[in-house]
Design a protein around this nucleic acid. Structure first.
Lengths: 115, 115
DNA sequence: CCTATTAGTATCATTTAGGATACTATACTA
DNA sequence: TAGTATAGTATCCTAAATGATACTAATAGG
């Protein structure tokens, strides 16, 4: 296996996770299931509507999440992780595990430096 | 476990992998071991020296790679993955695996749409 | 009739990432 | 003595991501 195709596959996965708000959106949906636009907005107040919409659309375009519009007024739109999207969980789990170790690693480094 | 610390850990890992050239640099070093600056440059000709330097420095700052300078002229600097950096491999592997499936998924989607 | 509600868009501004190009030091070689 | 090689810096510029703010439609409730 040369490096090139391997790189592409890695970057495919990375491309889907990258975006200032995508990880938290995915974690929220994975954890709490189907949620309305306004619920997500409420749980991540720092995000602007424009950004929330944009990140949701991008995830939807990749079939990671599903968008269901109810024909009501005021509008109701629900988002949920697709079965396919759930396949990202091992990656997120691996990152979470690594990140936890990394936090320790950084702390130890700081302690060393201060001695 | 609330979402916040979980998110931070995920973003720590993500932050280290994100950067236009970081994945390929890591894959090259993981695959081929210690390499000089110029070797990396040769294998990734599209990258500018400035960017290569920058990405290498960022990886070094996180202890993912190690930089060894030989006091020679012309200069010789070797880069290698640290033991700690090797712990990123499961993440890269998970991404690679996922990306491979994702490529298939996209192909199937295209075929469906063209029917 | 006025107001709140929801899930957005539209427009503009700012920030961050990335790129192009030129420059450097110093020893070795032709 | 001019040219080459290496691992960078410095400066300027462009493009992409993100943010702030204001706006919309249509209905229900007071």
């Amino acid at each position: 296996m040369t490096i090139e195709p391997e790189l592409c596959r890695v970057e495919d996965a990375l491309g889907i996770l990258v975006g200032k708000w995508k990880p938290i959106i995915l974690l929220l949906l994975l954890k709490n299931g189907t949620q309305r636009f306004s619920e997500l907005k409420r749980k991540v107040p720092e995000i602007t509507q424009k950004m929330l919409t944009k990140q949701l659309r991008e995830l939807e375009d990749e079939d990671i999440i599903e968008r269901v519009v109810y024909p009501q007024v005021p509008p109701k739109v629900e988002y949920s992780i697709t079965e396919y999207g759930k396949s990202l969980e091992p990656i997120l789990a691996a990152m979470h595990e690594w990140g936890t170790k990394h936090t320790l690693h950084k702390q130890q480094k700081l302690e060393q430096e201060s001695m």
